[in-house]
């Protein structure tokens, strides 16, 4: 048990993008700020600071989460993945299909898509559009996003070829 009773930094250890990391953080610091301003991992964006837009989506223990709604000090022992961990070779369909325009929502979109791609079972009960509803985009109208992810999913797993019913 650690009981920090002042705003002294807390040192925690976690796994970030497959590498162990020990870091001293202010207990009030959000994961988003640690990533961006302490670690220089600026791919994770702040869009709203209230868990609405999903631009700061990262994977924590293989699940998508908004980095603006997590305190870094809560992540001791956890596995965190950010956009910086994504292999560029997995992005060509999204590149081709117009998934990105201004790019501000894009890293969050890619991270949520990565999770869906790794857990395609989640599409059994919810549509791709439903699963992507935590990522607001103001440029594409979502068609380019949905199409790009569909093509990526189908390439990963052609047996369960997925198509937006709309």
């Amino acid at each position: 048990m650690s009981t920090n009773t002042c705003t002294n930094p807390i040192t925690i250890s976690l796994t970030l993008n497959s590498k162990p990391l020990s870091i001293a953080v202010d207990p009030a610091e959000r994961l988003l700020d640690t990533l961006r301003y302490q670690l220089g991992l600026t791919g994770t964006k702040e869009g709203c600071a209230e868990g609405e837009c999903g631009a700061c989506t990262v994977l924590i223990d293989d699940q998508p989460a908004n980095a603006c709604l997590v305190l870094t000090c809560q992540l001791a022992g956890r596995f965190v993945r950010t956009i910086e961990s994504i292999n560029v070779d997995t992005l060509h369909h999204m590149h081709e299909q117009g998934t990105t325009q201004c790019g501000a929502c894009t890293p969050g979109v890619v991270m949520c898509a990565q999770w869906i791609n790794e857990h395609q079972d989640v599409l059994k009960h919810q549509s791709l559009r439903q699963l992507m509803s935590g990522n607001l985009c103001r440029c594409t109208g979502y068609d380019g996003i949905i199409l790009g992810i569909e093509k990526t999913l189908n390439e990963t797993n052609p047996a369960t070829a997925h198509k937006d019913p709309r």
Binding site: T82, I83, I86, H95
Partner: peptide, 10 residues
């Protein structure tokens, strides 16, 4: 898109 990959990779 020219800058597409830079945006997709963050």
């Amino acid at each position: 898109r020219r800058e597409g990959l830079a945006k997709l990779t963050g």
